[in-house]
Design a protein around this nucleic acid. Structure first.
Lengths: 341, 341
DNA sequence: AACCTTTATGTAATCGATTGCAGTGCAGCA
DNA sequence: TGCTGCACTGCAATCGATTACATAAAGGTT
């Protein structure tokens, strides 16, 4: 009447062998005689047996899961990275435990829970700005599960990371605009304390310097990667006496907000101002005008991070810190045009 | 030398009590004398003890996780729903295990793994088109964990679900367009076998009928909710002799693809054709033109689904099938205008 | 034939926390 | 004083699978 979940002893009884043999037949098939194996598999099939993961994990001293720390799950930018991670994990029978760190910045205790080995065998952090207290614990000692940063990273460089060549992206953006004849170029940045902001800004400034150009402080609009920040930058741009004829936006979202707000005020892109984005999210090619942008290999970021982490988990000793940098590329579309005097 | 993770016996020894008392002090504090409790908590703090979840789950016969079946993690539409789910779960110390079902449609076996009670205490499916074989198992019997559909649902109605009032959304879209004077109205649909497609189409057709209008078969463009599908619909629209002066796109993404492709061909929105979308994703208000659309409460969908599921998990008996329908609303922006003759 | 390998399987300890049951001590009450 | 009841706490079984070690059988060697 009560259809309880069959356990390994049920299979063993039906197959007429010991539980040890059943366990082996299922996880190390080659260590068991073929005839026995067939009997066991048939019995397992017949009973509908599934291994109890809590029991297995307890015995094996692992959790079978890795946690992904995402700054904001609602942000579509991260979803493609998650997809990449998932692709790799689904082949390794490791589960993906997604945690949003937004409220966590309020409550470091809560995130700390997730960093302990009892929760996960490893961690992928998409959030470079985790509180120091958390990082200290994460990096402390042998018991802690391996952690790897994807996309963002920590300034100190104490952790392995997989990231895009952000500085080069900044260079490409500027080189493109300068190549079109623009001399006064503005920039919409990410948050002040963000490593991506720094890297992209540095690349941009370096490229300008190399061409003998500079960027006036009032042409740098402080943003935070969001649509709103782009719209705010547009307001600032409108109020300038000397307006840049081109703007490098450090995220596509901000570029959309920027262009959209300008359009509302009758300013056209690329007619009145050229705009380069960063990320190449899906909608970029359907925006009007289609957005010229720096493509980040987001899926590959996820794939690579997951692969590296799995390797680290497998390694017996403390693996070395490993930094992987992926190439970016400029995708030229319709939001940039030649400087028109 | 080897800093092994402290276990409950370590805490017990340090506090001078039994493991039973430690366990109780931590999980049912009121069942233990105050002085003892303090001693135990101090000892736990001192050793840095964290409960081993595999052991607890094994003993308690649960997994502490629920799985979310997402058709495509990379699709930003789902991310807000995930955010809603996460918000609720983070308060319940239940983990969120995200699984992409794309490759799963190839391999039902793989998804089946996740539906078993050994993996999760419950399931939220954002994918209404799971293979029947899977659903059969999921609904079969007492051992199976509760499952609830969010956003999409199954035609048979054998499962609880939380969804938006899609039919009403279709009605609102058509009413809006008809109110602007449009008489020949087209529609870009989702996949043929999708419940959302059916509901939205039905609402649209009903609203037309009520106004004495009809929709010609050649004005129905078969899509799949993607950007590309919208672009394809634009091609079809261009080839028509009699072109609809307004189009209801069953997703914002398709609306973007549609408008973008039309723009490329010199057709303007809303000048030459009005467009209403569905979803109100973030970018809709920044698109040019800003998109008139039907807003779905995506975050609330996630919140509600998670709450209902948690309730079901808590319930001892088989809970009744429960359908929650959330309101949608029309957000009027710039992609629709009065019929101009 | 005696002995050593190799292969296949079983026995039983183990992972770490939870919890039913039993015991202890103390207060209240007749 | 003796008894009952209550509040705490401890003992030990238990969750289900894995695996080190022991055992047994079969094959090979001299």
């Amino acid at each position: 009447m009560e259809p309880k979940a069959p356990k390994i002893t049920d299979v063993a009884r039906l197959a007429g062998v010991s539980t040890a043999t059943v366990s082996r037949a299922l996880s190390k098939p080659e260590s068991v005689a073929e005839s026995t194996r067939n009997t066991v598999l048939a019995a397992a099939e017949k009973t509908g047996y599934r291994v109890n993961l809590s029991a297995r994990n307890l015995r094996r001293q692992r959790t079978g899961a890795i946690v992904i720390l995402v700054p904001n799950i609602g942000n579509p930018f991260f979803s493609e990275i998650l997809a990449g991670i998932e692709t790799v994990l689904s082949e390794s029978d490791i589960n993906m435990l997604v945690v949003d760190t937004r409220q966590a910045h309020m409550k470091p205790q809560l995130v700390l829970e997730y960093l302990h080995a009892t929760r996960a065998d490893g961690i992928i952090a998409l959030d470079g700005s985790l509180p120091d207290a958390i990082l200290a614990v994460a990096s402390s000692g042998i018991g802690a599960p391996p952690i790897i940063f994807a996309c963002e990273w920590t300034p100190g460089g104490e952790f392995s990371s997989v990231r895009a060549n952000n500085a080069h992206g900044g260079e490409l953006a500027i080189a493109h605009l300068a190549g079109l004849g623009h001399r006064i170029i503005g920039m919409i940045t990410g948050p002040d304390d963000n490593v991506l902001t720094h890297a992209r800004s540095k690349g941009a400034i370096d490229a300008l310097t190399e061409k003998g150009l500079a960027m006036a402080p009032e042409h740098v609009f402080a943003g935070d990667f969001s649509l709103d920040a782009g719209a705010r930058a547009a307001q600032s741009w409108l109020e300038l006496d000397q307006r840049p004829s081109a703007v490098f936006s450090q995220s596509d979202q901000m570029a959309f907000g920027f262009i959209s707000e300008l359009a509302r005020q009758g300013i056209s892109v690329p007619g009145d101002v050229s705009v380069v984005g960063f990320d190449d999210i899906a909608i970029a090619q359907c925006f009007i005008p289609a957005l010229t942008t720096i493509r980040q290999p987001r899926k590959k970021l996820g794939l690579t991070a997951a692969r590296v982490l799995i390797e680290h988990i497998g390694a017996s000793s403390n693996p070395p810190i490993e930094t992987t940098i992926l190439d970016v590329e400029l995708i030229e579309r319709d939001s940039t045009g030649a400087f028109a005097g």
